[in-house]
Simulated scan of single mutants.
Amino acid sequence: MNTTLQAPAMPFDSAPATRRKRFSPARIGVYAFLFSAALYFLLPLYVMIITSFKSMDEIRNGSVFALPLLATIEPWQNAWRQVSGGFWNSVAITVPSTIIPILLGAINGYALSFWRPRGANFLFGVLLAGAFIPVQVMIYPLVWMMARSGVFGTLPAIVLVHVIFGMPIMTLLFRNYYASVPQELFQAARIDGGGFWRIFGQVMLPMSLPIIVVAAIMQVTGVWNDYILGLVFAGRDNAPMTVQLNNVINTTTGTRLYNVNMAATMLTAAVPLAIYFISGRWFVRGIAAGAVKG
């Protein structure tokens, strides 16, 4: 007599065994923290924006959080007249101070990841150490060298300083990014007869768009928001926007125009804010693609 043993049929249950609570205490705590953090950072921005559109009489007589009763763009016009020179100085400083370190960092990272010249690890350690040296420690030696060479207080001087301080971190970013690229891809390019520059220009650079965006965002915001290097090395004729903003806000003559000060501050912060809003998702994608791997 043959008997077939069958497993007892399990009752079909469409609902999961454990259902996550929609509003658990932990989730409520996380949302409360995120809301408080957003409010902490957005409230000053809100005050700056609404104050920049108010007249001085309304600022004196109204609440700091109240919307303007009669909005005016006159403070923005006055602010632009005072900081427009610094704006174009910042553009002239930021563009080469972004392109050159990214290009040098990409070449260094590519060489350290694939070609590995003699002493590559030592060179990488020196560059990495340079990324953590405080800026204040290097100011006096750089001032002395540039004064002796006759370029102190010029546009090439401030660009050179930003290139020097930007190249270590750019090298670190690109080296870690290229370290995640399969070695087989580089070896295949070598078998096909590719040299150093051909592989770099035709293989590596087209693959580097995510990390280039990350590096550009970091370098642009760092150079644009810089104050101390621009104050020391740029000179009076090439003072960036942050230096001129300080001169506008800290003036000691006449009445302090809070609406003009707020408008000038918003104009100074406009470029980094625009970059983050436009390229935010590219920044996250570049970080996920290997910017912090290695």
Rank of each mutant, 00 (worst) to 15 (best):
M1L: 10
N2Y: 11
P11F: 06
F12E: 13
D13R: 13
A15D: 10
P16C: 10
A17W: 05
R20A: 15
R22P: 00
A26M: 09
V30K: 06
F35L: 12
A37E: 02
M48A: 15
I49G: 03
I50F: 01
D57H: 05
G62Y: 04
G62Q: 10
V64P: 01
V64W: 08
F65D: 09
L67N: 07
L70E: 14
L70W: 03
A71D: 00
W80K: 00
Q82G: 08
V83Q: 04
S84E: 13
S84T: 06
F87E: 05
W88P: 00
W88I: 09
N89R: 07
S90N: 08
S90G: 06
S90P: 10
S90Y: 05
V91F: 08
A92I: 04
V95W: 05
G105I: 02
A111N: 11
W115V: 00
W115R: 03
G119A: 05
G125L: 10
G125D: 03
L127A: 08
G130H: 07
F132K: 05
I133F: 13
P134Y: 13
V135F: 15
V135R: 13
Q136Y: 09
M138D: 03
M138P: 00
M138W: 01
M138N: 09
L142T: 14
L142H: 13
W144Y: 14
M145R: 09
M146F: 15
M146A: 11
A147V: 09
S149H: 08
V151K: 07
V151F: 14
G153K: 13
T154R: 12
T154G: 09
P156C: 10
P156F: 13
V161G: 08
I164P: 07
I169H: 09
Y178F: 15
V181K: 03
Q183H: 09
E184R: 07
F186L: 07
F186D: 12
Q187S: 11
G194A: 15
F200V: 09
F200R: 11
Q202E: 09
Q202C: 04
M204W: 08
L205P: 05
P206D: 10
M207D: 06
S208G: 11
L209W: 11
P210K: 12
I211A: 05
I212D: 01
V213G: 14
I217H: 09
M218A: 11
V220N: 07
T221A: 04
T221Y: 01
T221E: 12
W224K: 08
G230Q: 11
V232F: 10
A234M: 10
D237T: 14
D237N: 15
A239P: 04
P240F: 05
M241D: 00
M241Q: 12
Q244M: 14
L245D: 01
N246H: 08
N246R: 12
N246V: 02
N250G: 12
N250T: 13
T252W: 04
R256H: 14
Y258E: 04
V260Y: 01
M262R: 00
A263G: 04
L267T: 00
F277H: 05
S279E: 03
G280H: 04
R281Y: 09
V284Q: 13
G286P: 08
G290L: 04
K293Y: 00
K293N: 11
G294L: 05
